[in-house]
């Protein structure tokens, strides 16, 4: 436990967990609410013991802008899905797969994870590996790689970090 556990992360975890509990339970009698409180406390304790309470498990710095990002990602998601579905029905001849190495400008592991996962989430492109500041991407077609090289997504994720 070298890292000093910041109070902010504990509070954020408590809030998130309480929301999940209330959202799932739907019972508001005293018994279940107190059981919920005990559960949340226990989970926070466990998270503390497991040493996973830090900026990686509670990405506070990201949380505010993420909604805008998700909306944007949603659009990208639909587009890429359509293109892959088209390829599925056209058959394997429409494929022109390519592997490329792309730079990533994010500084934190969190940012890199968001970027890499966004790439994998959009069908047609998959992150194969991250190496330092570059990542290896496998795409079904060259357009997708060109699109990523354009750096739009990269910049948007970078903005999340600030």
């Amino acid at each position: 436990m070298k890292k000093k556990t910041n109070l902010r992360y504990i509070i954020s975890l408590i809030v998130v967990l309480s929301l999940i509990w209330i959202g799932n339970s739907g019972f508001f009698n005293g018994l279940l609410l107190s059981l919920g409180a005990v559960s949340v406390a226990f989970v926070v304790f466990m998270a503390f013991r497991l040493n996973i309470l830090d900026e990686e498990s509670q990405p506070l710095q990201v949380s505010r802008r993420i909604i805008v990002y998700w909306l944007w990602l949603l659009k990208a998601l639909v587009e890429s899905n359509l293109s892959v579905i088209k390829r599925i029905w056209k058959g394997p001849k429409s494929l022109d797969p390519v592997v490329a190495r792309l730079p990533m400008s994010q500084e934190t592991d969190m940012g890199k994870t968001i970027y890499a996962n966004s790439i994998t989430l959009t069908p047609g492109t998959t992150t194969l590996d991250i190496e330092g500041d570059t990542m290896i991407v496998y795409a079904l077609s060259y357009d997708a790689i060109e699109y990523l090289q354009g750096g739009d997504m990269d910049r948007r994720v970078k903005r999340l970090e600030e």
Partner: peptide, 16 residues
């Protein structure tokens, strides 16, 4: 990296 971060986020909710 990715696995580590995602799991870190997910473990507390799973426990809850």
């Amino acid at each position: 990296k990715i696995l580590r971060i995602v799991s870190k986020i997910l473990i507390p909710p799973i426990m809850l």
